[in-house]
Each structure stands twice: as structure tokens, then as C-alpha cells.
Design a protein around this nucleic acid. Structure first.
Lengths: 333, 333
DNA sequence: TAAAGGAATGTAAGTGCTTACATTCTCAGT
DNA sequence: ACTGAGAATGTAAGCACTTACATTCCTTTA
């Protein structure tokens, strides 16, 4: 069942059928309804390949994410997918893993599908210095389609970053801990992403602002699995009265460590997580966490994608939203 | 940069270039390497639309999921995506929501992309009776591409179901609670999916097996949000000494309820969740949960998809894997 | 050294659509 | 009734591939 069949059955030319299908104005009402009837009756769907061949696009946006088994990423993908669909775009999702090679390969795959835009979620960065060249593939990709990065930073033409101000959020969180009398802060992360670096920087700023010497032992690198974090802490047995983590899962590991050691939370140990996921509220005591505004960033991204695909060129290369501390029971403020 | 350019540059015909690109045997080594050099040098990638137009497929499988903000679904999608990519298939993901209309629309969208196979994850069912007609769209889809359903049941040609034996798992779990002296079981669910029905049936079987009268109040329908469940239970204040839920999030809501009421878990109240997600281990006390074998079902599905796409027709329409109770701290066994 | 036969390569006909341009229709204005 | 303009429709040329079939090129082998 192709456009020729429909044309024949409705007694018009394929051009007219095409016009009807694409909602062109230049068709008489009578013809339109006749063709539409036949189309419905025969259950005809245009062949996307042929359409794509003709016009070079498929009304599709690619979403590239390191993993979807992460609440933050899942939330973003979910929102992006939903809204893009509402606006008539289809999504191709790809989970790249965290390696550069994986990301490059998946980026290629997505580009080969002639997507109209490409969205990276998280974990991508080109900070100052050593890692810039690792993001060249993103600048390459941006030559073929506008690239949006949610919670990552890459500089380049046609590359748009939508960020949460993790540095400030973390500075303020650590500042609050210090202001409430905590002395030994432990910073826990599982990542070397742009966002993790910003958080680290924020923590250091707060420490320095309070005149506290910054020591290496205060910064721990772990997996993002609750029990792995707990066991790691048990094994090194650090002395600390407050912990901040770059993700809720890690923070809960610290809570579990405290419980294992018989420390009270938040009495002996304050804990602050990040991303305000459902884990935070599953935990007991419920976890104070920084909301990194996934939905807000995604909403902005969607608006921008639609604008740029509709020919609006005035999209800011970068925008930053403030994070938000959600106080629960693992802090005394 | 298209196949004609490459042909011209390498001094051969487009047919030969096509053969090289597709790894056909019928090309001399010399020609092959020459063409390959040019292709690499020019950075040529075949146009997927033109390829698709010619051969009618794009080496893509569609994945349809109600939502990805659910750990079970996310785990499945993650695994499917990863393995399919390893085997050279691309994935198109779509989140349909839970409504029939949403699912139908997304199914159409995916089919229009000429996918080689379609995978539904969860929430889909055609049980005995009233809901069969609602799955007609799946049988329609199966005429165009093999359909796999993970944790859902639909009968039809070219429809393959990969299930966890939720009924037995739930019967055994409730049986264990009864065997350990619990008398007032509360069953909590947020869904009317095939799998939720099976779990309900299993619970009823256990109750009947123990000669306990089955009362309506034992079966509660709630949202799947921890606080919503807790608040709901607080509002109706039911009397029970054990709860089983169709998802961990719901079960944790029951734990929170107990804590709010000053009940000890598992002393006064045993709780069993479902899906063994990371929430179970974030919870305190950690949640006993039934592992519904997402990865196993997905692995099987992948094997079957590959087999069927390679022409192997001997795929069983249905297969069932046993669930697995993971004992933690919300039960006394 | 020529004929045969298989390997390598080329030719051209699809594949289903979009769209610029050409043609035909319709009807208001004369 | 006749023009002419604008609306409606049709024609045909891409778009970038795959592949059946035709052709050419080597080897063998007698």
C-alpha cells in the first residue's frame, strides 16, 4: 500500500495525495476528504524512508545518555521523550555507557539517522584544560545537528548547555553544615563529570570561605551503590561529622555506615545527598538532598529545541539554574 | 558525499561500492581495499533512508514502555538497549504512558519506522475475558513485526511473552507470612496489569490454601509513591500484621506507615515488596522483596529476537521464570 | 590458441516519497 | 461568451541506495 495505490483509488495524482498527507493548503476540501477517506479505509502510512530520502529529515531527535538505570537520567529521558512526542518529534534513545568510545560510537549512530537535534544528558564536559579534546566529537556532531547538553558543559558552535548551578548549591550546602557547627566534612562522589567537578569546587569554596584547610582525605571516590559505599566507609573508617555526596545513592551509603557504627543521624552525622530522587524519601531517616532541577532544565531544553527547529536562532549557548536544598531528616537544618 | 562520489573517486561503479559497504563476497581484494580507503578518507556514511527504502528495514527494534521512571522498566530498557546494540541493532524507545490510546499511538509510530521487532515491557495484558479486545492493536502490530512482551500476556500469532511467575512467587510469599503466624495480610497494588492480577491471584490462593476468608478490605489500590501510600494508610488506618505490595515503592510506604504509628517492623508488621529495586536497600529496615528477574527475562528476549530475525522459527510463544524472594529486614524469615 | 566458464564489475530498474514547474480548471469581471 | 488570474491538480525529476541481470575480464584446459 503506497502513495500510488492511494492515488489510484482516490482518482488523483500522487502529488495531491502527498499534499493531503502533509496538510498542504493547496487542496480543495472535496479532494482532501475523499483522499483522507481512502487513506483511513486502507490504513495507509507513508513510508518514512521515502519521506526521509526526499526531505532529509525524519522529525526525530536523538537522546544520548550514559545509563538509564539512574533516576536523574531516567527522569530527564522521560520528560524529554514525553514532551518531544507531544510536539510531533520521535525519539531515538541510546545508552552509551560512560566511556568516550561508547559516546562517540552512539553519537555516530544517532547522526547517521539524520536526527534533527541531539541531546546529551549528563556526564559530558570539557572543563578547563586537559579534557577539551575529548569532546571534539561533540563539536563535530554539532555541525550536523544542534546539540543540547543537560547538566554538562561543552563549548562550541551549535552546542547549547543547560546547567544546574551545582557549584553554588554545593557551596551553600557545605556552608550551612559549617554554620551549624560541623567541622569534619566528607565529600563523596562516584564521578569525574563536569557536574561532579563543579560540586567539588563548590565544596572547596565553602571550606576555604570558612578558613578550613582543605585536605585530600576529605574527598572520597566511590561506586554509586548503597552497600558498596557503606562497606567502603566501614573499611577506611574515616572520622567525620557531616557528609555531602554527588548523588542520593552515595549519601544513603553514608547513612547506612552511620547506622552500622551506631552513630546517630543527624546528631553525630549530617548527610546531604544530591538529585532529590525517590531514594531520598525511601531512606530512614529521610535524606536531605539538593534538587538539581532536572525537569526545569529539560523543559528549557525542549523549548529551545522547538525554537531552533522552527528557525529561531536566538538561543543562549549556556544557561544556569539554581539548585535547591530540600531539607529532610538527615540534617539539623 | 554519496555513493556516486565514492564510486567516481575510486574509479568503480556504485554497485561495487555498495558491495564493499555491505561486505559482499563478490569483490576482489584490490578493489575492496581501494574503495575502503576512499570511504574512510572521505568519511562517507551510507544514507540510512536510501538503504531502508531499498531493503525495507533499518536494523532497528522498537521498545515500548509505559514509563521509564520506574526502576523495573528502566532496568529492562537498559539491558535490552545494551544487548541489542552489541548485536548491531539500534533501538527506538517510546514511553507510552499507561493508557490504551497512548500505547496504540506509540505502537503505530514505531511500526511506521519499519522496525524489525517490537518489545513491550510490562503493563500489557489480555487476561480472560473483558480486556482481550483492548490488545487487538498488539495482534495487528504482530502482523508487521514479531512482538515480544516482557512481563505481560497477550495471545496471538507472532506474539511472544516472557513472564515471571508472579502468581507462584506471591502465593509462596504470602504462604510464608501465614506460616510464620501472620493473620491479617494486606495486599497493596497500584496497577491492574496482567502481572498485578497474577500477584493478586497468588495472594488469594495462599489465603484460601490456609483456610483464611478472603475479604475485600485486604486488597488496597494506591498510588506508587511512598508518601502517598503512607498517608493513605494513615487515613484509613487498617489493622494488619503483614503487607505485601506489587512494587517496592508501595511496600516502603507501608513501612513508613508503621514507623509513623510506632509499630515495629518486622515485629508488629512484616512487609514484602516486589521487584527488588534499589529502593529496597535504601529503606531502613531494608526491605524483603521478590525479585522478578527482569534481567533474565530480557536476556531471554534478546536471544529470541536474534534467533527470530536470523530466521529461526522455533521460539516458544510463552515462557515463565520463577520469581525469587530476597529476604532482608522487614520480615522475620 | 581458442573456447569455456567462473569471477569481477557495470547497467539500470526499482524503492516511495517531495516538490518545482507545467498544466488545467474555475469563476469573477467584462 | 470570453479573458485572465488564481486556485487546484498533474508531471516528472530528484533523493541515495540495492540488486537482478548483463557484460567484461581472467584463467583454465584441451
Amino acid at each position: 500500500m503506497n502513495i500510488y495505490d492511494i492515488a489510484k483509488l482516490s482518482g488523483v495524482s500522487i502529488a495531491t495525495v502527498s499534499r493531503v498527507v502533509n496538510g498542504s493548503e493547496k487542496v480543495s476540501e472535496k479532494t482532501r476528504s475523499k483522499v483522507l477517506d481512502i487513506i483511513r479505509q486502507e490504513g495507509y502510512t507513508p513510508n518514512v524512508f521515502a519521506q526521509g530520502l526526499g526531505i532529509g529529515t525524519m522529525h526525530t531527535v536523538g537522546i544520548l545518555v550514559p545509563t538509564i538505570s539512574d533516576q536523574y537520567m531516567a527522569k530527564c529521558v522521560s520528560y524529554l521523550e514525553d514532551q518531544l512526542t507531544v510536539h510531533g518529534y520521535d525519539c531515538i534513545l541510546s545508552c552509551s555507557g560512560f566511556s568516550i568510545e561508547g559516546k562517540e560510537a552512539r553519537t555516530q549512530m544517532l547522526l547517521s539517522k539524520h536526527i534533527d537535534a541531539l541531546v546529551f544528558v549528563g556526564s559530558t564536559y570539557s572543563g578547563s584544560g586537559e579534557s577539551v579534546e575529548e569532546t571534539d566529537y561533540i563539536r563535530e556532531a554539532a555541525k550536523q545537528a544542534p546539540v543540547f547538553i543537560i547538566n554538562g558543559y561543552v563549548k562550541g558552535d551549535n552546542v547549547f548547555c543547560r546547567l544546574c548551578d551545582d557549584r553554588t548549591a554545593m557551596r551553600e550546602a557545605v556552608g550551612a553544615l559549617l554554620a551549624h557547627g560541623r567541622k569534619d566534612i566528607l565529600f563523596l562522589t562516584d564521578s569525574r563529570s563536569y557536574s561532579a567537578r563543579e560540586k567539588t569546587a563548590g565544596c572547596i569554596e565553602a571550606l576555604e570561605g570558612a578558613g578550613i584547610p582543605v585536605r585530600d582525605e576529605m574527598f572520597l571516590h566511590t561506586e554509586n551503590r548503597i552497600h558498596a559505599v557503606r562497606d567502603y566507609l566501614l573499611s577506611i573508617n574515616p572520622v567525620f561529622d557531616a557528609a555531602v555526596a554527588t548523588d542520593d545513592g552515595i549519601a544513603i551509603g553514608a547513612v547506612k555506615f552511620a547506622q552500622e557504627k551506631g552513630l546517630s543521624v543527624p546528631g553525630d552525622l549530617c548527610v546531604i545527598g544530591y538529585n532529590n530522587s525517590s531514594l531520598a524519601v525511601a531512606c530512614n531517616p529521610e535524606l536531605t538532598s539538593i534538587d538539581s532541577r532536572a525537569e526545569l532544565l529539560c523543559r528549557e531544553t525542549i523549548d529551545n529545541i522547538l525554537a531552533i527547529l522552527h528557525g529561531d536562532a536566538s538561543i543562549p549557548a549556556c544557561s544556569i539554574q539554581p539548585g535547591r536544598l530540600i531539607s529532610r531528616k538527615t540534617t539539623d537544618f
